[in-house]
């Protein structure tokens, strides 16, 4: 049952991500990206990381996708459906990425850890909170500085003269 669940979510990730980069209408791409991110959140739930899954849904689908939709709607004066969305090098790009994928899978499949099966208890949410507040407190604080800088930068760049 659990395995079937994983294959279901993984197939969703694969199909939705391919649709997100190949669709012609950029608005549809953003919606397929939302579906991909939702499936990735499902992978997190499957991997016993519910906190991360919730953060993924909140931050990505609640925040970033909304931003994407706003940016698309603010700039969409061009007839997107009629204009070609991919560059002329799409065939060679597909070829190169397929080779890259084959090499990666070959390397991963020959490694011993690739067949490793789980036998330990998962990390709890308490551990995440403890790590964030003790060992990784400095990066955590730096993260807030980065977010503040991004917010100020976005306001300054986006301000109309």
């Amino acid at each position: 049952m659990n395995e079937v669940m994983f294959y279901f979510i993984a197939a969703g990730v694969c199909i939705f991500s391919v649709l997100a980069v190949t669709q012609r209408d950029i608005f549809h791409c953003a919606l397929w990206l939302a579906m991909t991110l939702l499936s990735v959140a499902g992978i997190y739930f499957y991997l016993d990381a519910p906190f991360l899954g919730v953060v993924q849904i909140l931050v990505y689908i609640g925040g970033i996708i909304t931003l994407f939709v706003f940016a698309i709607k603010l700039t969409a004066h061009i007839g997107y459906k009629s204009i070609r969305q991919t560059s002329k090098q799409w065939a060679i790009a597909a070829f190169i990425t397929t080779i890259l994928l084959c090499i990666l899978i070959r390397v991963f499949a020959t490694n011993p850890w690739s067949k490793m099966v789980l036998n330990v208890a998962p990390a709890s949410m308490t551990q995440i909170g403890n790590s964030l507040m003790t060992n990784y407190a400095v990066p955590f604080e730096f993260m807030s500085v980065i977010l503040l800088a991004a917010m100020v930068g976005a306001i300054v760049i986006g301000k109309d003269k």
């Binding site: 694969c14 991500s17 991997l47 990425t97 994928l101 990666l104 499949a109 067949k115 490793m116």
Partner: peptide, 24 residues
């Protein structure tokens, strides 16, 4: 139980799709 390799394969696929999109 799913072996670790499957997750790495899935992530490699997602990575390659992303690279393809960024290139084209």
């Amino acid at each position: 139980m799913i072996p670790l390799g499957f997750f790495v394969f899935l992530s490699a696929f997602l990575f390659c799709v992303g690279i393809y999109g960024a290139l084209t």
